[in-house]
């Protein structure tokens, strides 16, 4: 770990290049602890993706026909909900940087509403799947699909709980333009969960 990184464990420095521009040495967005958790999450999903690719290699015909069984509309709906929620979170962080706490809270509420759309769609999709006989005995593709997407759903639930926490902290004025590492830690977790979905979506709903 570089000295610059150790010296900047929390929020961005008050002075220096704006967010989004390269910084020599860089900083740790959020907190180190959150990044440890994120790398654990990424490792977990990397292993599950390895299982997916090996299963796909062994059962190419099953995986070729698999996406036709699922609802592409539901898959696209998840994607749009998560992307919009992630956008709201990014806007919330920018609002806090501008010291606009009330705007930050409004963006977080928006993020929560769109984020909650994910489990709501999941509920309808699972009911639709089961009505069409897509249960745990419906073959390798469906088993892999349930295994990966339910794991992702658990991570979304963690994120939604974290979102409630940062909304409460924002509402009580805990964060400021100078110190918002908790909010930023949540944001990087939520965006990583978003990235993982952007990988899951084409694997199960699009690729044949």
């Amino acid at each position: 770990m570089s000295d610059a990184a150790i010296a900047l464990p929390h929020s961005p420095p008050a002075e220096g290049p704006p967010p989004g521009s390269p910084i020599p040495g860089g900083r740790i967005p959020g907190s180190k602890a959150m990044w440890v958790g994120i790398f654990c999450e990424v490792t977990e999903f990397a292993l599950m993706f390895a299982v997916y690719f090996i299963a796909r290699a062994h059962y190419p015909d099953v995986f070729h026909a698999g996406p036709e069984q699922l609802s592409l509309l539901a898959g696209t709906g998840y994607t749009l909900m998560l992307l919009t929620s992630g956008w709201c979170v990014a806007r919330a962080v920018h609002s806090m940087r501008a010291n606009r706490q009330s705007a930050c809270l409004r963006w977080l509420i928006g993020a929560f509403v769109f984020g909650t759309g994910y489990p709501v769609i999941k509920l309808f999709e699972v009911r639709w799947n089961l009505a069409h006989g897509l249960n745990g005995e419906a073959g390798m593709f469906i088993v892999t699909y349930y295994y990966l997407t339910f794991n992702h759903l658990i991570h979304v639930f963690w994120g939604l709980l974290g979102m409630i926490w940062v909304m409460l902290r924002t509402a009580t004025g805990t964060y400021s333009a100078e110190e918002y590492s908790g909010l930023e830690s949540f944001a990087v977790y939520w965006h990583t969960t978003d990235i993982i979905w952007l990988m899951i979506f084409p694997l199960f709903y699009v690729l044949r």
């Binding site: 770990m1 570089s2 610059a4 990184a5 961005p12 290049p17 967010p19 989004g20 521009s21 390269p22 910084i23 040495g25 860089g26 900083r27 740790i28 967005p29 990044w35 992630g86 956008w87 979170v89 990014a90 944001a187 990087v188 965006h191 990583t192 978003d194 990235i195 952007l198 990988m199 084409p202 699009v206 690729l207």
Partner: peptide, 27 residues
């Protein structure tokens, strides 16, 4: 499809996750 996936992930990393400002190890 793989290229679209990579492009979407790049946008999220660059603009939402702000990876260009992160430390080299994280990046």
């Amino acid at each position: 499809v793989a290229l679209v996936m990579g492009l979407k992930v790049r946008i999220v990393c660059g603009y939402y996750l702000e990876l260009p400002t992160a430390t080299r190890r994280i990046r």
